[in-house]
Amino acid sequence: MSEQAATPAPTAAARPAEKAESLLLRHVAAFFESPLAVVGLAGLVLLVAAALAAPLIAPQDPYDLAQLDIMDGTLPPGAESLAGYTYWLGTDEQGRDMLSAILYGLRISLGVGAVSVVIACAVGASIGVLAAYAGGRIDSLVMRVVDLQLSFPAILVALVLLAVFGRGVDKVIIALVIVQWAYYARTVRGSALVERRRDYIEAARCLALPKSRIVFRHLLPNCLPPLIVVATVQVAHAIALESTLSFLGVGVPVTEPSLGMLIANGYDYLLSGKYWISTFPGIALVAAIVAINLVGDRLRDVLNPRLSR
């Protein structure tokens, strides 16, 4: 808007940029038409903010043993501590405030999900677009590997990888990347096969641009919309998968507990009726996954008009 005011008479060069902006604005406007998607986005922003600000807003540092008092162990929600402040979501067996533990756990869960998706997306998209551009034997070899990997359930592949690597946040991320890259490779290849027959690729070839420039600057950007949709939904999948692995005891280490691990820790207490240790981290996990899915579903409808019903 301000740009328009600054240049009252748009030059020929400025016009495409303006068009792109209005397209983006149109997408944003379309996104906000769905109240559910707005709720999802608001929830997601709130959760991410809470996770980022955890050290500032958490009542205690749950991993500073000096702040924990074993006498406060397994207190129900709303109980007062010996030091006099209230545990709104109760405490675990070591007297750790669950609210603080959840805020810190959210950091790890969301972080692992986001980082693994970004890396997997970059790796998968590069492989997919190169395969589509190269075609022939390379293409069919890559796609065979993708097919092979996708024929095994992600949970099983990740489980085996982590059994090999051992525990650790970095190792979980590596395992999630290996499990996920094939989705992106397949998605990007699909749209790249269509795009590479378009005239602008032909034009770029006629200009004798280097291959890498054609692939990454011309072909790849035009394959992005479906990739964005897959990536958004995959963040939710990655978070769910990480929490499952941590619940099974092969994911993050005890020193950096994600939400899945907090849930696993509280499982023994669940059977004796102390529901809060497992339930509240679970609600945080579910809220994050549902919020991301709501946003992802709406993005799919907005970015792909053919799919809208």
């Binding site: 769910a240 929490s243 499952t244 899945g260 679970g282 579910v286 996954i289």
Partner: peptide, 8 residues
């Protein structure tokens, strides 16, 4: 049913 983790 699709999106929530199975263990949860």
């Amino acid at each position: 049913g699709f999106s929530l983790p199975n263990f949860w």
